[in-house]
Design a binder for these strands. Structure first.
Ligand SMILES: Nc1ncnc2c1ncn2[C@@H]1O[C@H](COP(=O)(O)OP(=O)(O)OP(=O)(O)O)[C@@H](O)[C@H]1O
Length: 878
DNA sequence: AACTAGGAGTTTTTT
DNA sequence: ACTCCTAGTT
């Protein structure tokens, strides 16, 4: 995962005399070494902390003269967080002030250049502190420097808690602090709210209803569980979408509303259902020894606020609490912070209300705006100088954000040169957009390293076109976030076995594992198994885990012979694996499961078996190098496997096989918050996509989208290009869209006159002839909300003329010919056609183009059907 | 029980 | 496009 690194890089350069860190090879190589260095530690918990440090130092020496073995770099956990823009981009800034002496000895972090306000914040003593400042003003630098300074002044790292909003930010902060103090930050609690909460819950397990080995349910697990629960409470999951229920419950938990509170506030039909299901769902999670994401926060707050002594214990344990991106905290997080810092009030939060982009998750900007009133006597620092971007970029950012009405005015200035104007590029479609970006990068490649480029976008789906373009032109890239590989079916399946090993009560894992590979156990048998569990429990008693019932499944219980055997063997297999494991290593456990249940064989036989196997072997690699240091604590006795699984659920680890070499970064705007890149391409600036129409449905949605745009703009250090496409494939259908309204908000003087990317392929609009055929209103009323929206204004004259082949088509039609397109499309919604078998009908919807094109047709006789144009033999009905 | 086709709902953003 | 679920088939 890419994260801002240049700061750290600069910080390193700041001190030519800074301990062993001087003369570092490029970042990536260092991480490569860390891989081998830290591998020793994995699975060797007996090693004393001191030894560990020595190891690290040893590695550091090795950096001086050696280059790493290529390929050794995979999966060192922090490596992934390194900022792509490390290196060149970062180096253009003058070195920071040189410290008087190597800081490792003196404990001086002031070699890091800080302006007076920043220094004020860094050196602020006890008591609450708020740094409220705009983008690129050095907030994170302050937070990091402050942490480093506290440690250098002798505070044990274990007594520091630093909380961030995303995993990337957490990893990055650790890196930065380590960079500053030149040694390991072992024992420092640093992580996301969720991971910190999970850790508290592990340590405090005796004070909770769960054991230390609890499972963390992700959204998918939650929904499945809810479905089960709904059924047992008597609601039909087809009538009430479990997904919607989950949303409500999640919202409630983040507002710290338990089932009882929720019930009293039920206000509509759905919430009445929720009120019934919520308590049952909580009981079920407890039975399964599981928490869902939101429980982590909820339970931690409950623990801190209501269980005697817990809050004081953590209050005493942490002398200081630091929170980054505070504007994105929701109520539960706020209460958690408050409880943790209540004893001493040493709470330092930094944030920017203009970058609040998680409202949809319950984040409340008031947390930061009211901080002063809330934490009495808080010291407030404001930073107004931006150190990141050129004048043009900053002006654009200022202009954009000033459009927001619900906002405290704030203006950033920079001393940097004006720089190049930003550019806005119009493209035909997403492929043209991606092609333009990639040709741009290819052209600049000689001048800049690929790590200096980033492509930002609103939705993950947009990465695909870029990916293809980069692949075509041989430009290495890395995708941050996206669909994580552990969300793939096969990976989840394999992980289910591990989960069951660790937490036998995890029915969701049981159901997954028992269903794959096939072992003669079907839905009926599983239902019977559930009956058995119910029969075995007395009234009010918790049901026995399904995995346990499975161990004694018998034909006499009404389970088919084969199924009963399958169940028993499954249970035995698990028991065997459990018995055979000598240690608690994740890799070891994985291997044992794969071997015992023939998982690899089963996978290999599947459709894209090779790919799936590949993914599973990546899982192996991830398990292999899993390190517990980030989650390690003297009070935390969890095993490696337990921690590994929890990390997986928290998405804090594992990644696709990304590598640390030179590569363009592709990342969503949300994920990019907090990062910086010399050259930024921000794609998809189209009305409906960005600002995203769905997001605008919520109150304040447009302003939040605009803040997100502001975040995007302010990621750029030197150059910024915005692109939009006239046509785009969205959700399986072609759409046209207008340029984003955000483009109109840009100050002209800083924008290069519009460019248009060269055309690729052929999107042709046909009009003129046949206009009469156009259906009134442009589409079928029943056919979703889609319409071609070909206003007369959009199709000047005969557009691109008739097709290359001279054929003309119906009106309002979009035609897209890529090189391989052989079937010029002459279909559009509303057109009447005749099918050789189904007869006459009217086109409702067109999916895809060329050979792949399919149309949905409402036939007069047989109703709606989807047919493949290339094979259907459709003729116009005239 | 296992497989398959068809359908329905999603495709914002993240922990 | 895509995944997941359901219903109907084998
Ligand atoms: N006093 C300073 N002197 C030189 N460079 C600085 C100074 N303060 C910050 N910077 C640089 O400015 C850039 C932005 O800093 P930082 O990331 O800490 O800002 P931020 O306020 O956290 O930004 P954002 O809100 O956008 O995440 C970094 O490259 C950092 O190294």
């Amino acid at each position: 995962m890419g994260v801002r690194e240049s700061d750290q890089e600069r910080d390193r350069r700041a001190g030519p005399g800074w301990g062993p860190d001087r003369d570092l090879p490029p970042r990536s190589e260092r991480s490569a070494f860390r891989v081998s260095g830290t591998r020793h530690r994995t699975g060797d918990p007996s090693r004393a902390p001191g030894q560990d440090l020595q190891h690290r130092r040893h590695d550091q020496e090795a950096w001086l003269g050696r280059r790493p073995v290529p390929g050794a770099a995979h999966h060192r956990r922090h490596a992934r967080w390194l900022h792509p823009s490390r290196g060149l981009g970062a180096g253009r800034e003058l070195p920071d002030r040189t410290p008087a002496s190597p800081s490792r000895e003196t404990g001086d972090v002031r070699g890091l250049r800080l302006n007076p306000e920043q220094r004020d914040a860094v050196e602020h003593g006890e008591g609450p502190l708020l740094v409220l400042a705009g983008a690129g003003s050095g907030k994170t630098r302050v937070l990091t420097a402050r942490a480093a300074r506290l440690i250098e002044q002798g505070l044990e790292p274990t007594r520091l808690l630093a909380v961030t909003f995303t995993n990337k930010a957490a990893g990055e902060m650790r890196e930065r602090i380590e960079g500053l103090i030149g040694r390991s930050t072992r024992g420092l609690w640093i992580g996301t709210f969720h991971s910190v909460a999970a850790r508290v819950l592990r340590i405090e397990a005796p004070n909770t209803s769960r054991t230390r080995a609890f499972t963390i349910y992700d959204e998918d697990d939650s929904i499945r569980t809810l479905r089960d629960v709904m059924e047992s409470v008597g609601y039909d999951p087809r009538r009430w979408a479990p997904r919607a229920l989950r949303g409500r419950i999640s919202g409630a938990k983040n507002a710290l509303m338990g089932p009882a509170e929720y019930e009293s506030e039920a206000f509509d039909l759905l919430s009445e259902v929720v009120a019934k299901v919520y308590p049952a769902y909580q009981r079920e999670l407890e039975r399964r020894n599981a928490y869902d994401f939101d429980d982590l926060l909820f339970e931690t707050v409950r623990l801190l606020e209501t269980v005697d002594g817990v809050r004081d214990r953590y209050g005493a344990r942490f002398a200081h609490v630091l929170v980054d991106e505070y504007q994105d905290t929701n109520h539960a997080q706020y209460r958690m912070v408050k409880a943790l810092a209540s004893k001493h009030g040493n709470l330092c939060v930094v944030g920017d209300d203009d970058q609040a982009v998680y409202g949809w998750r319950g984040a409340d900007i008031r947390n930061i705006l009211d901080f002063e009133a809330d934490f009495h006597g808080a010291h407030v620092v404001r930073l107004e100088r931006n150190y990141r971007s050129t004048g043009s970029i900053l002006e654009v950012a200022n202009a954009v954000i000033s459009r927001n009405l619900a906002r405290k005015p704030k203006r950033l200035h920079t001393e940097r040169e004006t720089g190049d104007p930003i550019e806005v590029v119009r493209c035909d479609d997403e492929r043209a957009e991606a092609a333009w970006v990639s040709s741009r990068i290819a052209a600049d490649r000689s001048a800049r390293g690929l790590n200096e480029f980033a492509v930002l976008y609103r939705t993950n789906a947009q990465s695909r076109a870029f990916e293809e373009a980069f692949r075509r032109s041989g430009i290495p890239y890395r995708i941050v976030g996206g669909v994580p590989f552990y969300e793939r079916r096969e990976v989840k399946d394999v992980i289910a076995y591990l989960r069951l090993l660790v937490n036998p009560a995890d029915d969701a894992a049981f159901l997954r594992a028992v269903g794959w590979p096939r072992r003669g156990v079907g839905a009926k048998s599983l239902e019977r198994l559930g009956d058995l569990a119910r029969a075995g429990a007395g009234a009010g008693e918790a049901l026995e885990p399904l995995a346990a019932v499975a161990a004694r499944a018998r034909h006499e219980d009404g389970i088919p012979r084969a199924a009963a055997r399958g169940l028993r063997r499954f249970a035995e297999g698990l028991a065997d694996v459990r018995a055979s494991l000598s240690g608690c290593g994740a890799r070891e456990a994985l291997e044992a499961c794969v071997a015992a249940f023939g998982l690899a064989t089963a996978l290999a036989e599947e459709e894209d078996g090779a790919d799936r196997l590949e993914n599973v072997s990546e899982l192996f690699a991830a398990a292999e190098v899993f390190e517990r240091d980030d989650v390690e604590d003297p009070d935390d006795e969890s095993t490696d496997l337990e921690l590994f699984l929890q990390s997986v659920s928290l998405r804090s680890d594992l990644d696709e096989a990304d590598f640390d070499g030179e590569a363009v970064t592709m990342i969503t705007l949300h994920n990019a918050k907090g990062l910086e890149f010399p050259v930024v391409f921000l794609g998809g600036l189209e009305e409906g996509l960005f600002p995203l129409s769905r997001a605008m449905e919520a109150p304040g949605g447009l302003e939040e989208e605009r803040r997100l745009f502001y975040v995007g703009v302010t990621r750029a250090m030197d150059r910024l290009s915005l692109t939009y496409a006239d046509h785009r494939w969205r959700a399986g259908m072609a759409s046209r869209s207008a340029p984003s309204s955000f483009i109109d908000e840009l100050p002209e003087e800083h924008v290069l006159p519009q460019l248009a990317a060269p055309r690729r392929g052929r999107w042709r609009a046909r009009d003129a002839r046949g206009t009469a055929r156009r259906p009134p209103g442009g589409g079928e009323p029943g056919s979703r909300s889609f319409s071609w929206q070909r206003g007369p204004d959009r199709v000047p004259g005969r557009a691109a003329g008739s097709g290359a082949d001279g054929r003309s088509g119906p009106p309002g039609e979009l035609e897209y010919d890529y090189e391989d397109s052989q079937v010029p499309l002459s279909l559009a919604p509303g057109v009447r056609v005749v099918h050789p078998r189904f007869g006459a009908g009217e086109v409702l919807q067109v999916y895809g183009f060329g050979k792949e094109a399919r149309v949905e047709i409402a036939f007069e006789k047989v109703g709606r059907k989807k047919v493949v144009v290339a094979y259907a033999g459709l003729r116009p009905d005239c």
